[in-house]
Write a protein that binds this DNA or RNA. Structure first.
Lengths: 206, 206
DNA sequence: AAATGAAAATTTCAATGATTTTTTCATCAA
DNA sequence: TTGATGAAAAAATCATTGAAATTTTCATTT
């Protein structure tokens, strides 16, 4: 059992001010930044340095106590290789926003004309895993093999995708699913149509 | 830096015998049982008791050192509310089995004529999360609201499903996705066609 | 080979203290 | 009035350690 010393004497008074702390910022941009930072295993200090801002400021921003300037957001988006729009999804109706992501209003994660369009199926970053909706254009190929310290799985919705797991080639068609953890991965869409997949990653990397 | 004491004196000799330990059982049924037991937070003892078997035996079975009799498997399937077939999926071609689950050869998790047909999209149980392919028959409804100590998310492939999250009603259509953790859930397929979803659960519960 | 029981090994868990990270807050600047 | 800073306070993280619980190993019996 822990003994809570906070409700005595001087400390009790401070708590009062704590509760009064105003929540100036309305959006949830701060939470997103926090999730993104965490997914990269950066500390407040790590990110603050790259932004040329103080740790205290970043802490406030991430807790939605104060809002970053547009320029900061641009910088942040850049650091995470995300489009600025990522932070401004038109949040759906009140209740929904927390639980549902409608087909038409997913958050875009990569605009890049690299042949891979990714959007987020989870309402927010963070949590144990994230679900991404990925569209691989015909001919698109993974720029280079990658290994991630994650557990990943996917399901093919449309088209077909060639996946190399530790160098072994697998051709995946609609309805097929895959799963790997720690192996070296590459992919290429050898088909003539888009390959559409649902990709699950744990823990989140975006 | 850890100091490994095992390669000295008597211990070193034992290690030799350890390496010789034969792997008598070929399948991976044992691993499945282990994953299932763990997902229920049961100890070897808990399960052994219900099976009227010794802990030592169960340990061997789970490590694929020895094989349970068919009757044991029936009992085990029963304890986990799974069809016996669950343990006998026709493992695809060698390399594939570990990574890929083909559309046509998923492991069935529930035959129950309750209007919900679930099959596993992950090649094996265990891991950080599991992906389930679920088909909700028209009119099918969740027998009773449930709360699970998990983080779950899903994506609608076909049809539509009504999901109640903490009592709030959401109608989901193809392309929509949802996410919840700890809320009370119920669902019902009010449509005239099957509702087909992909459902992700972390950590695994099956 | 399957199964058991008991010893040996391993894992799990809670408690502790040292660090690191994060939050709070008084204060200054725009 | 909000953004920003720096430093103190609080909280979270991490590596240890010892005790308890779980799991594995193995000699023996069926």
């Amino acid at each position: 059992m822990l003994i809570d010393l906070r409700n005595t004497g001087k400390a009790a008074q401070r708590q009062k001010t704590l509760q009064k702390a105003p929540l100036r910022s309305s959006g949830k941009i701060g939470s997103d930044i926090r999730a993104l930072r965490r997914s990269r295993n950066w500390t407040l200090n790590d990110l603050a340095e790259q932004l040329d801002r103080s740790v205290g400021w970043l802490s406030q921003v991430e807790r939605n106590v104060s809002e970053p300037a547009l320029d900061d957001i641009r910088k942040i988006a850049g650091l995470f290789s995300l489009p600025v729009s990522f932070f401004f999804t038109d949040a759906a109706v009140s209740d929904e926003a927390a639980y549902i992501v409608r087909a038409g209003s997913r958050r875009i994660m990569s605009d890049a004309p690299k042949g891979l369009a990714e959007s987020l199926l989870s309402p927010d970053l963070g949590g144990a895993f994230e679900i991404v909706h990925s569209v691989f254009a015909p001919g698109a190929a993974c720029p280079e093999p990658f290994v991630r310290p994650t557990e990943e799985a996917g399901y093919v919705l449309e088209g077909s995708l060639v996946l190399f797991i530790d160098g072994v080639r697998f051709e995946l068609y609609p309805g097929d699913s895959f799963h790997f953890a720690g192996e070296e991965i590459t992919w290429i869409n050898e088909g003539k149509t888009d390959a559409v997949l649902i990709w699950v990653i744990a823990p989140p990397v975006y």
